[in-house]
Write a protein that binds this DNA or RNA. Structure first.
Length: 643
RNA sequence: GGCUCCGUAGCUCAGCUGGAUAGAGCAACGCCCUUCUAAGGCGAAGGUCAAAGGUUCGAAUCCUUUCGGGGUCACCA
């Protein structure tokens, strides 16, 4: 495919070479070739050349040896294409060097275009990118950081690739879990001397943290109550419990006899579930949900109040993260949607109804299972809502061609089913919906588990990283004369840049390890390494004063290597956009900076006496700075003028 | 168990739509600041690309199997 070649080296020249080869191959070897046989790869460092043509595919076809084929093709291309300056054949590889003029033209193209590598805005179809999508009773954690940085970055990359992008999130603001924190707050919040329960105002707690606290409190009390009930059961105190429940308890208890530890734990879980269903707390929470659905004014007021706290808290966190959204969707608005679609599917015969009137879809033909779409009591499930929301979005944005869902890979199956159902329903856009599935973030100590308290809170983490950036930056001391505001911005830029780069440089699909010590590292393959290169170039440019691009200078190898990497940028953006992978951008920029640093350390730019060479080097430096700034912005990372 | 993703240097990761001697960073070792910011550069060291078969002129990359790990298989979201 063309994309591979774009990625490997410069796309313009290779297209030309390929065209020329297709046109003239017959005149050299008396046989025709197909496009697939023309394979390029990056020239290995130890050989001279800017691109390499693989000759093996032609061996059988022509019946000649690689050296002869390479020489003939090389000669041909050199005469046909003036920009090919030289070539050599090593083994089965034809290495070609492009002329200085070619590389200078590439440099100029990069230098003179402020939005080098970007396609015209909104020149490609509109896409919606969903990310974040939090639960309103849990503060955001490390996993959300990966999600948000990833979603935001993919959206920026798609914009750069010419798409119109609508950033959105769906806020999970309803359901029994929300009622749990509401109930816990009502029951367990202490009341102060003014007669108020805890609020963000009177406690100084961030709203999402306060609500999260009561969600945890609910769980604590809930478990305690369930445990007490089990205690009663174990002492044969079955008064007030239904016979069905008692029978089940006895059944599970009997089943435990003679079983191994693991099986017993499983049965204990079942007993716990049984007991939980008998708690007053759950009954009250369910009651609250019924009242909420009936729009009971008191419950509704409580709900809007507490959600208001959470949103204010999230807003603060998003601001710190540097992410934003064009449009918000709330589950409380969308949870009823989808039922119509299910009924429509039922009418069309795409779905079927069981005797208990629950609605299902049969996906066994696709190698999957039967999936529930409507409960027997007619209420929606997760899938129902997602169907409704998707259709709703296409109604809201008629120009939309697809939706990207940034959601963890534990939901791979869900999205597979969702897209399948949409396709079965006949929505043509179903095929352009895609699940940006990312792996879990592990900690060195193991998995993050909210129940065990091993979650890393997003706010805490960002604060710690910025604090650490402050400490380390102050040590190195390039900040004299900065105002406090400038300093704080710088610490923010470095800390967040480091964190974002750390989370984005890894292929999103892969599970990754979050090592706190490594995440604040400033050396090596890190965000600050890249930011530092940018700041150093800014310093250089300000010392150099004004200059103009001079095409008369000759280029050395180190310079050419940098230009080659710069010229790759447009293809890299496209590659990152088609693969929804910020990691491609991150790794590209790292390469660019390494190449630039090698060049930078090998010569002194400002001491250069030849004006043409000096201006060429400054042009190169400024171009590199521009691409750093541009590519980092695609990752949501800022770059500092000084650091 | 079914389905699915993953396994590359001591550690964290690139490379994976087949091509030359598998690359970085961290850690550890040795150099380079009287000249543009050393958050940098240079050097050396570190590998049975989980294992075994297969396809191919050629396999870390594609196919099969095995081993090891994750996820998922709710009238939860």
């Amino acid at each position: 495919m063309l994309l591979t070649q774009l990625r490997i080296t410069n796309f313009l020249m290779e297209t030309k070479i390929k065209a020329s080869l297709l046109a003239h191959f017959h005149s050299l070897f008396e046989v025709e070739i197909t496009e697939q046989l023309v394979q390029f790869q990056k020239t290995k460092k130890e050989f001279k050349g800017d691109t390499t043509l693989v000759l093996f595919p032609f061996l059988k076809l022509t019946g000649q040896n690689p050296a002869a084929i390479g020489a003939k093709i090389g000669e041909l291309l050199k005469t046909e294409l003036s920009l090919i300056a030289d070539f050599n054949v090593v083994g089965g590889f034809l290495n070609m060097s492009f002329s200085d003029d070619y590389w200078k033209a590439q440099l100029l193209a990069c230098y003179s275009d402020k939005s080098f590598g970007f396609l015209a805005p909104a020149s490609k179809p509109a896409i919606m990118v969903e990310y974040s999508s939090p639960n309103t009773n849990k503060p955001l954690h490390l996993g959300h950081l990966r999600n948000n940085f990833l979603g935001y970055s993919v959206a920026e990359i798609l914009k750069a690739a010419g798409h119109e992008v609508i950033k959105t999130q769906i806020i999970n603001d309803r359901g029994i879990h929300i009622c749990k924190s509401m109930l816990a707050w009502q029951k367990f919040s202490p009341i102060n001397e003014k007669g108020e329960r805890e609020t963000p105002q009177n406690t100084g707690l961030k709203g999402d943290k306060l609500v999260g606290k009561y969600y945890v409190e609910f769980d604590k009390q809930f478990n305690a109550e369930a445990k007490a009930i089990i205690g009663l059961w174990e002492n044969k105190a079955f008064d007030g419990f239904s016979t069905a429940t008692v029978e089940k308890f006895n059944e599970f208890t009997a089943a435990k006899i003679g079983k191994d530890e693991k099986a017993c734990a499983g049965l204990d879980d079942k007993i716990k579930e049984l007991a939980k269903n008998e708690t007053n707390l759950l009954r009250e929470a369910k009651d609250l949900l019924v009242r909420w659905e009936g729009r009971d004014p008191e419950v509704y007021l409580l709900w809007t109040t507490m959600n208001g706290w959470v949103y204010a808290g999230f807003e603060e966190t998003y601001k710190k993260m540097g992410v934003n959204f064009d449009r918000l969707y709330y589950e409380s608005d969308t949870f009823i949607l989808g039922k119509d679609i299910v009924n429509e599917g039922l009418a069309k015969g795409v779905f079927y109804q069981k005797e208990d009137s629950s609605v299902w879809v049969d996906l066994t033909d696709e190698g999957l299972d039967h999936k529930l779409l409507l409960r027997s009591d007619g209420t929606s499930v997760y899938m129902t809502q997602d169907l409704g929301t998707a259709v709703d979005r296409f109604n809201d944005y008629p120009q939309l061609t697809g939706i990207l869902y940034t959601v963890g890979n534990e939901q791979d199956y869900h999205f597979k089913v969702l897209f399948l159902i949409l396709a079965k329903m006949g929505y043509s856009w179903a095929k352009s919906c895609y699940h940006i599935s990312y792996g879990m973030v592990d900690l060195p100590s193991g998995k993050m588990k909210s129940r065990e308290g091993t979650v890393v809170d997003a706010d805490d983490l960002m604060d710690e990283i910025v604090a650490s950036a402050k400490e380390m930056t102050s040590e190195r001391g390039h900040i004299e004369g900065m105002s406090d505001e400038e300093k704080n911005n710088l610490f923010q830029t470095i800390g967040m840049g480091g964190l974002k780069y750390y989370l984005l440089k890894v292929d999103p699909k892969k599970r990754m390890l979050f090592d706190p010590a490594e995440s604040i590292e400033l050396n090596g393959h890190t965000g600050p390494f890249i930011q530092y290169a940018y700041a150093r170039i800014q310093s250089l440019l300000s010392k150099a004063g004004s200059f103009e691009f001079d095409a008369t200078a000759t280029m050395n190898d180190a310079e050419k290597e940098v230009v080659k990497q710069l010229a790759l940028y447009p293809a890299i953006i496209e590659d990152a956009a088609t693969n929804f992978s910020p990691a491609i951008i991150a790794n590209y920029t790292y390469e660019l900076v390494k190449l630039y640093n090698q060049f930078y350390q090998s010569i002194y730019i400002l001491q250069e006496e030849d004006a043409a060479i000096k201006s060429l080097r400054l042009t190169l430096s400024e171009s590199v700075a521009n691409v750093i700034s541009s590519s980092m912005s695609l990752l949501g990372i800022n770059v500092p003028k000084r650091m």
